[in-house]
């Protein structure tokens, strides 16, 4: 046993399989943290956008004006979230309305379809990578345990060649083995927390989108039918 037991030397003394497990766990941890931070940025941006857009939308502003504002903004950043839903629906609506002799129900149907497609895209963006987090949360614990069991097994195997088993012989091997579980837990706990948090957040955002889609279609519906009545 060395004078000072550095964790790094502990890792380096481990068997190749334990090393493999530890390094893969480390990589998994890095990856899951990338996803955690990235999802956090994406989701907080989406909810902020949603909040801002709803405020503008219900401010009584003219819809075509709102659309044009969005168009000018789109030159710098692509529209995301609720604004994207609005734009695709409104674009389809105005396009179809300009077609001569088209049924207002058909116009409504087209606008709703366009919004449904946009909603599916938004959903995909929001939910992207979330399954990875849940996989990390459940699997890295097992991976860590696997490394630990392997390490402890090795320790006992090497112990069998010793005539007298002292704690000093067993301790480094077991500490080594436990390091794998520790790393597994380190990767799993944030991933599990983030997954639960983000899943509920994505759910609530998509619910808001659906509500907005319904509200916006009713507005469009009203416009389409009042126009036909005028005609």
């Amino acid at each position: 046993m060395s004078e000072s037991l550095n964790l790094w030397t502990l890792v380096m003394n481990a068997s190749w399989l334990a090393k493999l497990v530890m390094f893969s766990l480390f990589a998994i941890s890095v990856m899951s943290w990338v996803i955690i931070v990235q999802k956090w940025i994406i989701l907080s941006d989406a909810s902020k956008e949603m909040f801002n857009f709803e405020k503008r939308f219900w401010s009584g502003m003219d819809l075509s004006q709102l659309y044009r504002d969005g168009s000018s903004k789109q030159k710098t950043t692509a529209a995301i979230g609720m604004e994207n839903l609005f734009r695709s629906g409104f674009k389809e609506f105005t396009r179809l309305r300009q077609q001569p002799g088209i049924d207002s129900d058909a116009v409504m149907e087209g606008a709703q379809r366009a919004m449904r497609v946009a909603l599916a895209r938004e959903e995909r963006v929001l939910e992207k990578h979330l399954p990875i987090l849940s996989t990390v949360a459940s699997v890295s614990v097992y991976l860590g345990l696997f490394g630990t069991v392997w390490g402890i097994m090795n320790t006992f195997v090497s112990l069998s060649s010793q005539s007298q088993a002292s704690i000093a012989v067993v301790a480094p091997g077991i500490a080594d083995a436990l390091l794998a579980t520790e790393m597994g837990l380190f990767a799993a706990i944030p991933a599990a927390i983030a997954y639960n948090r983000y899943a509920s957040k994505v759910d609530s955002i998509i619910n808001s989108y659906l509500t907005f889609t319904d509200e916006f279609s009713s507005i469009l519906h009203r416009q389409a039918h009042t126009r036909r009545v005028q005609e």
Binding site: V34, I42, D45
Partner: peptide, 25 residues
């Protein structure tokens, strides 16, 4: 004004996420 996270949002927010994760580890 509408995009306080505009810098972070480039490339879907990956560069800051990678940086944060690497620094943390």
């Amino acid at each position: 004004k509408f995009h306080p996270l505009a810098i972070l949002l480039k490339f879907e927010g990956y560069p800051p996420a990678v940086a944060a994760s690497v620094i943390l580890h």
